[in-house]
């Protein structure tokens, strides 16, 4: 059986990842690195499964998931509305574009304390910060997505008598899809990062809070299990959207 270049590449990549875990295991088991600081990979994985069975851990995951979801569901429509305004209105586009770009490019994390001062410590503060981390990138990408719609395509549709709503649903949406998918993917990265950071900074629950507590208490096995878990969730989501992006890659023109 011969493999295509792509299959071979993903095979090699998998091998690299497995090898890295193997190296980790080896370093720790042989004592080349202090196992108290770097517990063996197998231990971390075993701990991960054990943790997933615990109700406290499940509750933490649920908290994080709901914060991420709420922040995302708030940030996407608001950001999209701003982006639409920028792209569709000449005047407001010129007014808002530099402002949004500025807000988009300054570091958001340093504003975290403001959210605690405003909302106290809890759900609202974390959602608020997640929203704040996400909304500007959504606005920027939506504007870019709208601008990726080719005027020619709109003219063609009009020449066939398409109505306004048909132009939106049959030209704008599919034209914007590739850019939009990428935007959603990156927005989710920002959103997830924002919520995790907010949880690590000041929180009583959530997976980010759990991770920082394990770190402070030198519970290295739990800590590494948590790191693997968060990384896995992020990578799986990212790959799923990337897969969809690849499917409509050729729509880009």
């Amino acid at each position: 059986m011969t493999l295509s270049e792509r299959q071979r590449a993903s095979l090699v990549r998998t091998a690299i990842v497995v090898a890295l875990f193997g190296l980790w295991e080896l370093l720790s088991r042989t004592g080349a690195v202090n196992p108290r600081l770097l517990p063996p990979a197998s231990d971390a994985l075993a701990t991960l499964f054990e943790l997933l069975g615990r109700p406290k851990m499940r509750a933490d995951l649920m908290v994080t998931a709901s914060e991420v979801a709420v922040a995302f569901l708030l940030a996407v429509p608001v950001g999209a509305a701003i982006g639409l305004l920028i792209a569709e209105s000449r005047y407001w586009g010129e007014v808002l574009r530099p402002l949004v770009f500025f807000l988009f490019s300054i570091p958001k994390s340093i504003f975290l304390p403001m959210f605690i001062l405003a909302f106290g410590i809890g759900f609202a503060q974390k959602v608020g910060f997640g929203f704040f981390s996400t909304v500007f990138i959504v606005a920027m990408s939506t504007a870019a997505a709208v601008e990726s719609v080719k005027p020619d395509h709109v003219t063609v549709a009009r020449s066939f008598g398409a109505t306004r709503s048909q132009i939106v649903s049959r030209i704008y949406l599919p034209s914007m899809m590739p850019v939009l998918l990428e935007a959603l993917r990156i927005a989710m990265i920002f959103n997830f990062t924002g919520v995790i950071l907010a949880e690590m900074y000041a929180s009583r629950d959530g997976i980010g809070h759990a991770i920082s507590t394990w770190g402070e208490n030198f519970q290295m096995r739990q800590l590494f299990a948590g790191v693997i878990l968060v990384a896995l969730i992020a990578i799986l989501f990212n790959e799923a959207v990337r897969w969809a992006e690849r499917r409509c890659e050729h729509w880009r023109t």
């Binding site: 395509h153 030209i171 023109t253």
Partner: peptide, 17 residues
């Protein structure tokens, strides 16, 4: 009115999706 007039545009006016 596509029942009376059809239009053929320059290249790349096909919908890529």
């Amino acid at each position: 009115d596509p029942d009376r007039v059809g239009v053929v545009f320059q290249e790349a006016s096909l919908f890529p999706w």
